[in-house]
Nucleic acid binder design. Structure first.
Length: 560
RNA sequence: CGGGAUGUAGCUCAGCUUGGUAGAGUACUUGAUUUGGGAUCAAGGUGUCACAGGUUCGAAUCCUGCCAUCCCGACCA
């Protein structure tokens, strides 16, 4: 690409409406441009990067024996009605009507259509296993798009679906995809961690996420350095390091706590430790009032609650819902409540603790488990710093991640919904076992930039960069420099080496800065010493500048 | 969906309190001088002040409504 005659621009100022390093750099360097919240254009450089990522994934998909197809984005709503996911996705699915008023959707994910396609193929157990995949645009009406390409409403996903006769077959197919994912992300040079996760709206037996390590990640990952345990916070079992002392029980007592509505204020006012308090979360679970009690130091885990109560929607309860329960917001305690009460395992081990008195301005102290009435007791909180590995008992580590890939053992959920069956050896009809596997391409791009940039711009890994080399002409008025640079450019192209020629009539500083901003891995500078047959060679990720004879350059480049 | 902020030149923003012909930097055009880390000088073009109403002799500025963008929450594969 010769810059002078190409669509190429960079911005000098940070983008006003980008809230992540990767989003800002990709916009500033002219890779992408926002059209509306959560919707981006892929400009020439951006599309090249996406295509590189796509090519790496495609290589390992094919190697694993999967076949590429392309499903439509425009899909009759009935497919999602039949699987029950029209409700499951709720407002997140884009809905529209055709001219005859027929309900259509823009596909958010494609389990239904792949199962439908498989119906034409599968008659007998002899027709399996097989695996289909596609690179295709997904539409999800996210409540809140953010972080550049990390959370968007329209994005390209590689999704694959495996079909097997039984669970054993699914295990084999799953392992193949799992390994292909590892190879793909390894080749891209991403620092990632694989964690167990919630199956969520996909359903099924197992979900594992490929999480790129990044501080702005929206998921909290926990792992253990001493064994292979790793998990998304949302599903991790809590194992506390410190047990509560079994103190001699003291008589229950009501104390005045004026203007102390948060548990921190109460603990401070009464001069007690936060760990000796119990706090209440007054929630609306599918329209029913449920009050949860957990240790004052903990956070409620909504994924665990959702599973425990088999609920679809959980939010804070409004005042109307609370009225008949006897609870008083800010002073809510587990004694004398008139509604469904769920307590965390830990509460039963505590003694002489402090909690709300259900009376404005008052709390109870010396409360013990036998003082409270509850309906359910379970693990309903998040693990936190200091907790132990559920597998080996060593202290857990915490980090943040961006979910770039996810693999699911779906089991027979969708084959049942779509009536996808086969005849087994005994000519009995059986459900097909499915797996589904996704990678977000834009999100992967964003994760790479999050992990690999400096104050000057992006630093692409060699095999992801839109172009591997950039040739800078220091002075376009100098005919020798122009001639040498153009000859170099032609020579690289003739050898199928992709490069950019910066032949713009700009000052050197502009060219250096742009080359660094767009993150091309290797820079070749044609300047003063060109007349002596010497050019400069500099990798983006180091400060060393090397002088190279022009006749040796091709060899050097081919060695990289 | 709740709370908050913002919307003025391609980009980043000032002006709004106290109404009176639209501003800066950067980018762009032309010329000159420059030319190894975002040049200098001179001349020049650039706007439905998000949109719609209202108040007023007069509105970017005041009032009402509405849309969009962003942040925090809620929600989320």
């Amino acid at each position: 690409m010769k810059l002078k005659e190409s669509f190429f621009y960079t911005l000098r100022e940070d983008a006003r409406d980008e809230d992540s390093a990767s989003g800002n750099l990709l916009v500033k360097a002219g890779y992408i441009k926002k059209t509306s919240a959560g919707v981006y254009m892929m400009l020439p450089l951006g599309l090249r990067v996406q295509n590189k990522i796509e090519a790496i994934i495609r290589k390992y998909m094919n190697e694993a024996g999967a076949q590429e197809v392309k499903m439509p984005s425009l899909i009759a709503a009935e497919y999602y009605e039949n699987s029950g996911r029209m409700k499951g996705f709720g407002p997140s699915i884009f809905k529209l009507k055709d001219r005859t008023d027929k309900d259509m959707v823009l596909g958010p994910t494609h389990e239904e259509l792949f199962a439908y396609a498989a119906k034409s193929m599968i008659r007998s157990y002899k027709n399996m296993p097989f695996n289909l995949y596609q690179f295709q645009t997904k539409f999800r009406d996210e409540p809140r798009a953010r972080f550049g390409l990390v959370r968007v409403k329209e994005f390209v996903m590689k999704d694959a679906y495996s079909f097997d006769a039984d669970e054993k077959g699914l295990d084999v197919s799953y392992k193949k995809m799992f390994d292909a994912y590892k190879k793909s992300f390894d080749e891209m040079g991403i620092d990632y961690r694989i964690v167990k996760a919630d199956t969520g709206i996909m359903g099924g037996l197992l979900s594992e996420e490929f999480q790129a390590i990044a501080p702005l990640g929206e998921d909290t990952l926990i792992y253990c350095d001493d064994c292979d345990f790793s998990s998304n916070l949302e599903v991790a079992k809590v194992v506390r390091a410190k047990k509560h002392e079994n103190k001699e029980k003291l008589p229950l007592q009501e104390v005045e706590t004026p203007n102390c509505e948060s548990i921190e204020e109460v603990a401070k006012y009464l001069n007690i430790k936060l760990e000796d308090t119990v706090k209440a979360l007054i929630m609306n679970v599918d329209g029913e009032l449920v009050i949860f009690f957990i240790n004052g130091e903990r956070e409620l885990n909504e994924t665990k609650v959702q599973k425990l109560l088999n609920a679809t929607e959980i939010g804070f309860a409004n005042d109307e819902l609370i009225v008949s329960s006897n609870a008083v917001a800010g002073y809510c305690g587990p004694v004398g409540l008139n509604c469904k009460v769920v307590i965390d395992n830990e509460v039963l081990e505590m003694s002489n603790f402090c909690c709300g008195a259900n009376k404005k301005g008052y709390h109870l102290i010396n409360v013990n488990p036998e003082d409270i009435k509850y309906d359910l007791v379970a693990d309903i909180v998040n693990a936190k710093e200091g907790d132990l590995c559920p597998q080996c008992g060593k202290p857990l580590k915490f980090t943040k991640g961006i979910e770039i890939g996810n693999t699911f053992k779906l089991g027979t959920k969708y084959s049942k919904a779509m009536n996808l069956q086969y005849s087994d050896v005994d000519n009995k009809l059986q459900d097909v076992w499915m797996g589904s596997y996704g990678i977000g391409l834009g999100r992967t791009m964003a994760a790479i930039v999050e992990q690999s940039h400096d104050e000057k711009g992006i630093i692409w890994p060699d095999n992801i960069a839109p172009y591997k080399f950039i040739i800078l002409i220091m002075s376009t008025k100098d005919e020798t420099q122009c001639k040498i640079a153009n000859e170099l450019y032609d020579k690289l192209n003739a050898n199928n080496i992709e490069c950019i020629l910066d032949d713009r009539d700009e000052r050197p500083g502009v060219k250096f800065n742009d080359a660094e901003l767009i993150g091309i891995p290797y820079r070749i500078t044609v300047g003063k010493k060109a007349t002596e047959g010497i050019v400069e060679f500099k990798p983006r990720n180091s400060d060393t500048v090397e002088e190279v004879k022009i006749e040796d350059l091709l060899e050097k480049i081919q060695g990289i």
